[in-house]
Nucleic acid binder design. Structure first.
Lengths: 214, 214
DNA sequence: GTTATCCTAGAACGGTCGTTCAAGTAAATC
DNA sequence: GATTTACTTGAACGACCGTTCTAGGATAAC
């Protein structure tokens, strides 16, 4: 058995993803990955480079398999429904035993293996994409007239992004979906609060700026 | 120089805390701690036991130095002001160069060095205390009549706890306090949203239950 | 002043970390 | 069928991990 790859790249990434997701980046060793994926050390290094590069490939896979479907929930023309669906999707995954707790990128973000490195940057980028997707959903509804244009779309997007992260953190600590539903339910009340903060001049997401600044 | 301790325990814990906070649990080695604290390996093991026990001592110190002052912000009789102050305190710490990014317990919670171990339990407990403190502030205002008793105090407490965690996550990724202020500001709108979820029968925090279940 | 006590200092432990490499083999190419 | 190519395999690398241990010296007790 040689000369041709004995494994499927995506399959290996999925198994590696499960391990990193469950145990974290630092705590997952190459030996663990060898055992979990079934392929040899040499093949891992030959295919992905080193541990960091493997993890970056895993992050891409994560964005594709978990992130993209999550953003797709935002496609509902009613932004409230859209964001509610996004939260529901997060909460639903919580109860699915196929997935480890929390969120791979949130987990790794806080683990922070050296600030300012490529992994941290990549994760900040993913968070920025999430905020942007929410922002677009809100803005579109405002342009179409179905949502009050006085609302500060950027602030709302930032808020819902933070709540999503909060859900992931809480979920890591406690399993009960009822807690998460409470959080989501209360968060949904911000739409028509009385003190509508004045809309500011349009500003881009700060995520990218931060990334460039480092 | 022997026969009597050459270092101050709290001082060592503070230095260890800074390191764990900045780098995370797994990524911080005993050697790093030796260099940062200035005391010898033998003294660390003699005083604190092993790495895990040292970290648990650091967590206690963290609760004392960071957690307690944060909870104290909740003492304002107006629960809205109380929680606003708590958020402001988190955001203020963000801009203070003396403190590393994020929150030590949130960071470590997601790093998760083996689910169900003592560290994880201890952190879940700390989150539970935070939720309880918020809950008490809300309930008291309801009993005193300054806050609508129809509001679901438990759900609100869970929500504000999650937002606090979300602030910590976002802050780890981006430095801009304006983003955090947006999040806090929007979160404050939930107080008098129109669809006041019905108050449920009183229920204790789920944190402890989850803890016991493991 | 002697003894007992407790802390310090740094060498040393076995184990595991991420990574590399030489040897071997099946498929592809001609 | 010979040669090349590409992947697998498992041993081996040095470094560093968390932890232990021994030697030695300053203090406290008597």
């Amino acid at each position: 058995m040689a000369g041709v790859k004995q494994f499927d790249r995506s399959d290996v990434l999925d198994r590696a993803m499960a391990l990193f997701w469950k145990r974290g980046y630092e705590a997952t060793s190459i030996q663990d990955l060898v055992e979990a994926t079934g392929i040899n050390r040499g093949s891992i290094y030959g295919t992905f480079g080193d541990k960091k590069n493997l993890f970056l490939a895993v992050l891409d896979r994560y964005a594709e398999k978990i992130g993209t479907p999550l953003m797709a929930e935002l496609s509902d023309p009613d932004p409230r429904r859209a964001i509610e669906k996004m939260f529901d999707s997060i909460i639903r995954r919580t109860s699915d035993p196929r997935f480890p707790r929390g969120c791979l990128s949130t987990n790794t973000s806080l683990e922070c293996p050296a600030s300012g490195d490529e992994i941290t940057r990549r994760i900040a980028e993913m968070m920025g994409q999430q905020e942007s997707a929410i922002y677009r959903a809100i803005r579109q509804a405002q342009v179409e007239g179905s949502l009050n244009s006085e609302l500060d779309a950027r602030a709302l997007a930032r808020f819902f992004t933070a709540v999503a992260q909060g859900l992931n953190v809480v979920n890591k600590a406690i399993a009960d979906p009822e807690v998460l539903k409470d959080i989501s339910r209360v968060a949904m009340r911000v739409w028509d609060g009385p003190e509508k903060t004045r809309r500011r001049r349009p500003s881009t997401s700060r995520w990218k700026k931060t990334r460039a600044r480092r």
